[in-house]
Each structure stands twice: as C-alpha cells, then as structure tokens.
Design a protein around this nucleic acid. Sequence first.
DNA 1: GTGTAACCGAGACGGTACGTCTTGTCTTGTG
DNA 2: CACAAGACAAGACGTACCGTCTCGGTTACAC
Lengths: 205, 205, 205, 205
Amino acid sequence: MEQEPSGSGADGHGAPPRRTAGRPRSESARRSVLGAAYAILEEGGIEDFSIDRVARLSGVARTTIYRWWPSKAVLAIESFLEQFGPQLAVPRGEAPDQDFRALVRALAAALAGPAGRVAASVVAHAQSDEETQRLFRENFSDPLRTQAAELLERGITHGVFRSDLDIPRVIDAFVGAVYFRLIIGSSLGPDWADALSETILNGCR
Amino acid sequence: MEQEPSGSGADGHGAPPRRTAGRPRSESARRSVLGAAYAILEEGGIEDFSIDRVARLSGVARTTIYRWWPSKAVLAIESFLEQFGPQLAVPRGEAPDQDFRALVRALAAALAGPAGRVAASVVAHAQSDEETQRLFRENFSDPLRTQAAELLERGITHGVFRSDLDIPRVIDAFVGAVYFRLIIGSSLGPDWADALSETILNGCR
Amino acid sequence: MEQEPSGSGADGHGAPPRRTAGRPRSESARRSVLGAAYAILEEGGIEDFSIDRVARLSGVARTTIYRWWPSKAVLAIESFLEQFGPQLAVPRGEAPDQDFRALVRALAAALAGPAGRVAASVVAHAQSDEETQRLFRENFSDPLRTQAAELLERGITHGVFRSDLDIPRVIDAFVGAVYFRLIIGSSLGPDWADALSETILNGCR
Amino acid sequence: MEQEPSGSGADGHGAPPRRTAGRPRSESARRSVLGAAYAILEEGGIEDFSIDRVARLSGVARTTIYRWWPSKAVLAIESFLEQFGPQLAVPRGEAPDQDFRALVRALAAALAGPAGRVAASVVAHAQSDEETQRLFRENFSDPLRTQAAELLERGITHGVFRSDLDIPRVIDAFVGAVYFRLIIGSSLGPDWADALSETILNGCR
DNA sequence: GTGTAACCGAGACGGTACGTCTTGTCTTGTG
DNA sequence: CACAAGACAAGACGTACCGTCTCGGTTACAC
C-alpha cells in the first residue's frame, strides 16, 4: 500500500522515477509511523492505539499521518501487514498431509506469539471498516488460502486426498478454528494444532 | 445477569423475597438500557456504540448506566446476549448427522442476519477485555459447544460417527469456520452451511 | 437555630413541651452532622464541603440531612456558628478606649486561627444565599455590632469619645478592615490590630 | 493576561513579533469566552458559573477554554477584571479631603451596580484559590491602594492630614468597610459613603 | 396493646459539571 | 509541496455531587 516506486531500481527501463513537483514524501517519516504504530499495537492492542500516540511516539506530526492514512484502522492494519505479511512460509515437502500439518502448526505458532495479539486486535477492528477488511483479505487471508489450496490440490493429484474434496470449506474450517481460538483467548500450542490437523485430514482422505 | 432470586420458584420453603433496604432497582430502566444498547449495536456496530448514546436513546441517566455496567464492553455483550442467547434452538431428531447439518445451518442463519453484525462487533471487542471474553464464553460459546458435543456423542453411540472422534476439535472447526466468515464479511447462506457440514462430517464417519 | 422548646424550662407559662406525635428527632444525629460539617470546613474550606462528604463522615443518612438543612450553605454556616458563636467575649473594663483595643484584638485573634479560614469560606458563600446571609447577620454580625455599639456609647457618656460620633460607621470601618484582611489572606496579628485601633480611635476622640 | 507582545509598539527595537509556529490563538474565541463568562457572572453570580455554561454560551469548545484557563476561578476573575479593571478613575482635585470623599463615593458607586454582585462573587471565591487571590490583589486591590495612598500623602504634604497618619490602616478601614457592606448585602449609597468618609477623615486631621 | 405518625438508614434515579482524551480539520511558518 | 507545530470544534470518557424518590425498620405518643 502507498508503495512508492521511487526507490525500486527495477523500473529503470525508461519510465523516470516520476517525481511529481514539490517536496517528496519523507520515507523516514513513513517508516517511523509504521514502526511506532506496530510497537503500540504490540504492547497494548488496538485499545491503546491512537493517532495521537503514534504521532508522539514516532515524532511525526499528526497532520502528516492524516495526509497518508485515511483512518486509524487502515494505519493499524498496514503496520501489522508490513511486519507480519512475509512471516508465514508455507512448507513444500513430499507428503501433502505432512505439509498440511506443518502449515497448521506454522499458522498457530505465528499467531500464538505477540503478533497474534496484534492480529486479533486488528482483525477484530477490521470487521467495521470496509477498507480494512479488504486490506486484510487481500494481503493476508487470500494469499494464505491460495497457498493452502495449492497444497490440497497437490494432495488430490497425489491421490492422498479424496478427489471430491471441497477445498474452500476445508480451508474455512482450519483457518477459522485457529482464528476463533485466537479471539477467544484459548491456547494455540503445537499439540492442539496437530489434533486439529488430524481431525480435518480425517475428512480429506 | 443481576438475577433476582425472587422469581426462582425453587426456594418455596418460606424464604421471603429478601428485599434489601433502599429503593429497589428499576427494572424498566434496565430494560430500556439493554434495548437501546442493542438497537445501537444493530445499526452501527460497536463503532457507533457509546455510553452517551445509550443514555440518550434509552432516556436513562448516564450515571445509572455506570452504576450497573462497569464498562461499555460489558454493556454491549450483555445486551447482545439478552437478545441472542435464547435464539439458538439445537435440533434433536433421529439422525445425528442430519441434526448436525441443521445445527450448522441454524448457527449460520442466526449470524447471517443483523444479529451477526452485532455478534461480530461484540466478539471483536471481547478480545481486549477479560470480562467480556468471559461473559461471551460462558453465555454463548460454552452452551453452544456443550450442545454440539452432546449431539456428536449421540452420533458416536448410535454408531454413525467414528468412535475415536476428537469432539472439541470438530467443534473448533465448524464454529471457527462460521465465525471467521462472519468477520471476513463472507456470506453465510444455507448452501455454504451444508457444504461445510458435509466436509466436516466426512471426517466423522 | 432549630430551637428545641422541649428542655427550656423558662417558658413554663403554659406552653407544654409540645412533643408532636411520631418519633422525635435524633439529637445525636444532629450533633454528628454539625460536628462532621465543621471538621470538613476546617480542613478544606467550603471547596471540599459537600453533603455527601458530611453524610459519609457523620454516618448520618443523606436524606436525614436534607430533611433538616435546606442547603449546603445553611448547613455550613450553622455548623460554623455553633462552634464560633460563643467564642467572642467582649471586654468590659474601665477605659473604653482600652476596651475597644481589646475588642479589635480579640476579633482579629479569633479570625487568625483555623476558625478564620472557616469564617472566610462561609461568609464568602453567604453572599449568594439569602438565608445564609440572614443567619450570618443575625447570629454573628449583629451581636458583634450591638456589643461594639454599647462600648462606643459608654465611651461617649464617659466623655472619652466625641459626642457626634457616627457609631455604625466606626463599626463598619473596623469590622470591615478585619474581614477584608481575612479574605485577602493578609495577616491579622496583634500589632496590626493595635495599629488599626489607633487609627480609628484617632477619629473618635 | 496572556499578553500578546505583538501589538505593543514599544518593542520596536528590532524584536520581531516572534510568531511561534502553528496556528495562532484565536482572539475572537478569547473574547467570546471572557464575554460569556462575565455575562453569566452578572446574571447569576459564581453559583451559576460553570465552564460548561461558558462554553455553551460562548460557542467555544470546552477544550479550548481549558487550554487557556487553568480553573474556573481564574476564568471568572479574569473576565471580571477585564470589565471592571479600568472602571475606577481616581479623582485629583485641589482639596485632598474632597478627593477622598469622591474616591469613597466612586468605589461605593462602582460596587453598588451589577458589577458589585460580580465582584462579591469573585472575591468570595478568591479566598480558596491562591492564583485567584493573587490576580485580584495585583490587578484590583493593589492599584486601588496605591492610588489611595498617593492621595493621602498629598493630604499630608498639604497639611490637611496629620503627619503621623498610618496610611495603610486608613485604607484598610475604608476599603474594608465598603467590601464588607457589599458582602453583607447592605446598601452602598452616596449618603452612606459620605458618612463613612467623614468618620474616617475625622481621624486624619 | 395496637395504631399511626414521623423519624432514620439505605440506596436507586435523573441530572449537571468536572477535567481529560481523541478525532479530524484548520492555519500558520519553515525547508 | 511536504512537514512540524499547534489551535480548534466536537464529543465520549468515568467520577463526584446534587436533590428527589422509594423502600424497610424504628421509636414515640395516643387510643
């Protein structure tokens, strides 16, 4: 979001950096804001999150924040995605059912830490804001589902999973289970993750 | 909440209603507040919800609200539970798998309406408030899980479901799926509910 | 105030104790309230004075206080008068000018202590409440003026003071001076009192 | 208060207006607040005075008032001083005793009107607030005393008043008398003022 | 004795105001 | 232009009192 192509050297094939007139946006301000926002989310959840606090902590003027982020929800989720987005490595091994187990474990583990608290906060809030919902879906939910879908399809072609598998529903089930436990404040340990995997895989074979 | 032992016919051994000294709590005020709170939740979610607004809409003084509800989160969830709590009738027919399908359908249907929006709002908020989380769990989540568990156990004894079924995980899966779709803003139609039931039941047999 | 005809044997000209039907007023409650009220005034002035606080400190129900004192101003001044009223002994010696000096000293001394803080608080508030103003005038200001007037008249008949002395104005001057210093927060030591006496007596001879 | 050096032409020695960054304070808001504050004081005394009411009447946000005035006492006295401060013109004629009479009359007259009610309210409150007391003393009491002192000194040098006159005490006496009558709710007519002047002047000659 | 009347306690209720915190907009001056 | 600084209107927060209003119990005198 708000990605500035300015710095990316890849577009050097002719298109100039497209520097519009006036003072360019301060990249350092942007980073300060997102960093401070995430720090606040991590320590106090969305409850303690306010534009004022982000401004104070980041040293960036409130006006500047308002110029670039339309609402506190968007700022919160952007700061979360920037940190969390690249964190989930989907496994790709030989046995699809083992991969599935690993995926569930990885998701549970990622959300068990402090990032989970942030995720819960942010997604909770998302529910009231179209834009935030979209950002979450596009940058977090959809990629995860896509990767999971590929894994399941691989299982089908390998003959490990039944051919009439309703892939989206399977994904609904395991992602939903993890997320619901997160919201409810229940633990997300590896034992629980494995038990869930087993239950779901039972229906896939 | 604030249950008056007065009405419980069980103590018919002579114990008088035990009215404590002082002006008794106004039942009409309590109802007005919960009603207004639910109305606000229904139309604008938790975002537009404030004690001030509830006070104005209900015609009850703000101080009176604070006397009985410690925080806006608790008021919100209580107003939701009062409306939604008794809404979910768990089916009890001959075929446990049919019953399961009906249960998933009922849950999805209940949350597909305006109550869903409220539920999402409220549960979202729960995540940052211990007390709200507890209220939600005790009054909504736990009863639902208990009833679902009984249904699944019946299925096992009837020989319809496998005997090594991990009941809590099955429940995690279908409740989580419904709730996640709700949060994400995806549809919760009967077709989707049936597809989910089928996927999960596949693992139960 | 709240004159109790019950005990006063002096009115034995026929009027019986006139005990009206019903439970009689609790004398202990009355005393607790006035005592607590004065204690609060002494430590925090009128600023910290509230019916709630008096009720809490005295252990008397708020309703009971409201039954007997129409406003917090009246309660404050009554509690003050009960303590301060009998405190000022007007001297009666041989030399009227010496007596005057002693009177001014006594007034200044009485108001220099903690009671002064209370007096200032209370009289300050009096200005906005008819009833309080009347109570202060009748129970404090008028008696003081009457006694001072007698003293000055004695001085005239003794030939120490000029015969055309405008007694009320003299009293305005010295009482006003003391009170103004009190309000302004200036000291009220004996030296200042003597200097004031001298200045005023200069105009009396 | 809050004096803006910008307008004072005296600092034309090079110091620029020194406009600090950020949006400048709204002069119109300041005026609205002080005006509304005085209007409320005039009609209901300090009893009806509240920041809320001032905000409503002035149309200025409550937060803005709190930004500039630390307490309601300070706001009250400032609004009073702004109106009343320049109102008292001290006479300067040939005969010092005539001037004194005129001064007492002027003071009494000024406080006899609606401003008197405000003054009484405000000064009454001053007694519990250090800051208010200071403001009243510096901006009202001290200037008045200074001018009165000059008048009396002129009388001494002219030989009209005795040379050993204790000037501060004389001022205590007449200012106190006026203020005490004000608080007590007694009239402050010209006849009374003249009688007071005569009584005090008797001691000055 | 038994009313009945006025008391006292407890505490809920509708209100007003408090002083603080955020939100989002605006209005300056500087880089 | 971007940005820092900060004023502004709006409005919610949770608390303290206000004065009124039920209630349940407690004394008294009066029949």
